[in-house]
């Protein structure tokens, strides 16, 4: 087997190439300054943003964009808060319009979320599929937030999704990856005959080991927000997430040893000077 010695191992999502495999959200930080610092520590080049009504009353309120270097980061607008396919299409178009105005490269893609209910925030698979078809037809590169159901994932890919992003566990729950086997099957189905098709674990990350674990399974990237924003020390957690992404990716590429039930000595059995038990 050829050994990859190059350290360049970018995440390719459609026409976008990112040097970091971590995508970080911009919500729920204590302050915009803290967000700025956490994003920098995380090493990410791609950050998600939401689209909401402009608050028309307090005109002196700071805008998120005053705290984001749009030259440095590719913005990934989401359709969070949408429960209908048509609403997600509207919101995606509004996001594209804003990003075109900012001349940000993220204008041609969207993180599609079409949710089913407010308690679980689980995606509505039927509406997500419908919205994917419409957005692909409208020229978007669609990154689909999905459940970890491999069949749904395959349908979304067939509908033209640029990436399918199965949830590890519910949004903001911090439960990590609840069903690794489903993520494995998603990877197998989505990458069958198409090994470069990008799969991202989106949602549910609680701490660094969740990220490493996801990367070790062979996913191409991880998208997270709350795990950093609500950590007791968000900057330190952002650093941990960066390292965990790199560690997990390297471990995946290195190829882990098989699990065995019994021990195998690391030191030679030959030449020992002591009596050995049978």
């Amino acid at each position: 087997m050829e050994t990859e010695t190059t350290t360049a191992d970018p995440l390719v999502l459609g026409t976008h190439t990112l040097q970091s495999r971590l995508i970080v959200g911009t919500g729920k930080y204590a302050s915009y300054t803290q967000m700025q610092e956490a994003l920098a520590e995380s090493g990410t080049e791609c950050i998600t943003v939401a689209i909401r009504r402009e608050r028309l009353i307090d005109a002196d309120g700071n805008n998120l964009l005053d705290f984001i270097d749009t030259q440095r980061y590719t913005l990934l607008p989401n359709t969070a808060g949408c429960f209908q396919a048509d609403d997600a299409v509207r919101v995606a178009r509004l996001g594209r319009e804003i990003l075109l105005g900012l001349e940000n490269p993220g204008a041609d893609w969207v993180k599609l979320e079409v949710l089913a209910d407010t308690k679980t925030l689980l995606p509505d698979p039927v509406a997500t599929l419908e919205a994917t078809e419409k957005l692909v037809a409208d020229g978007f590169q669609v990154l689909c937030y999905s459940s970890d159901d491999p069949i749904v994932a395959r349908r979304l890919k067939e509908a033209g999704a640029t990436s399918v992003m199965p949830a590890g566990s519910p949004i903001g729950s911090g439960q990590g990856i609840l069903n690794e086997n489903n993520i494995r099957i998603c990877l197998e189905y989505l990458k069958e005959g198409d090994p470069d098709y990008p799969v991202i674990v989106d949602a549910g990350v609680g701490t660094a080991s969740d990220v490493s674990r996801a990367m070790e399974l062979g996913v191409d990237g991880v998208l997270l927000n709350t795990a950093v924003a609500h950590a007791q020390d968000p900057l330190r957690m952002a650093t941990a997430m960066r390292l965990a992404t790199e560690a997990g990716r390297s471990a995946y590429l290195a190829g882990r040893i098989p699990r065995k039930l019994y021990a195998t000595a690391s030191s030679p059995a030959e030449g020992v000077i002591t009596d050995q038990p049978r």
């Binding site: 959200g25 919500g27 943003v49 939401a50 402009e54 998120l64 996001g95």
Partner: peptide, 8 residues
Amino acid sequence: VVTLVGGG
């Protein structure tokens, strides 16, 4: 009239 806000 919409703008961008923090989100995940």
